[in-house]
Design a protein around this nucleic acid. Structure first.
Lengths: 115, 115
DNA sequence: CAGTATCCCTCCGGATACTG
DNA sequence: CAGTATCCGGAGGGATACTG
């Protein structure tokens, strides 16, 4: 990495990266977003689709994702009300990030594990 | 995200991304790599440069980074021997990933926090 | 159906002291 | 100098039961 960055640029980059990772971090956030990208779902559908997650953790992760505007919670006035989660428009902005990460991850696994 | 991915493609992407995040995860790995990108350093120099890290954690993180070939440990036969860590050639491959993450992180912070 | 409440337990990681 | 050894607290997360 022959970066010619000043120390200040480096540390602001670092801060940005850490912020980004903070939003994406954890065992469940990306699986949830990707499940919702496939199709919007209700709470209990997510429980089934995201294998192994518990309701407590799902609720917590959904809140985090809502706060970061990656997921939208919609309430429909049916009887009883139905609540649907979907991936936001904004979540499209993750596309580049995810593709880059996916590419690097794939190449890296090949390098380290040979497969 | 109007992706037209099959479910299989999606889940292999997900796996790749999770692998990538696993390598980059944690509070210290990126700060260490970035410090070494600036200049190779010895153990105690890293302790000073990466503020707040303890020797136990530093040793542990350096091992992880060595295993993933992002950091190289070099031993020089001076008396006493000196041990120098440096960012590997391969760590350059992280450039794209880090830039993408940094860009997204910066934009995201602006969106969510307005600064 | 859509979550909360509760309990429990592991593990991350920090401080400090010590060793070859 | 370059780490290990030891101890320890707290947070994150899992299982399950319960509620409006």
């Amino acid at each position: 990495m022959k970066t010619n960055l000043t120390k200040a640029e480096c540390s602001s980059n670092l801060k940005n990266v850490i912020d980004a990772l903070y939003v994406l971090n954890g065992k469940w956030k990306l699986p949830i977003v990707l499940s919702l990208v496939n199709s919007p779902k209700r709470f209990n559908e997510l429980i089934k689709d995201v294998e192994g997650i518990s309701p407590k953790i799902l609720a917590q992760e959904l809140k985090h994702l809502e706060q970061n505007e990656l997921v939208v919670r919609k309430v429909f006035a049916t009887t009883p009300v139905s609540i649907v989660y979907e991936a936001s428009e904004y979540s499209e902005s993750l596309k580049d990030v995810l593709r880059t990460l996916s590419d690097w991850g794939a190449g890296h696994r090949k390098k380290i594990l040979g497969r």
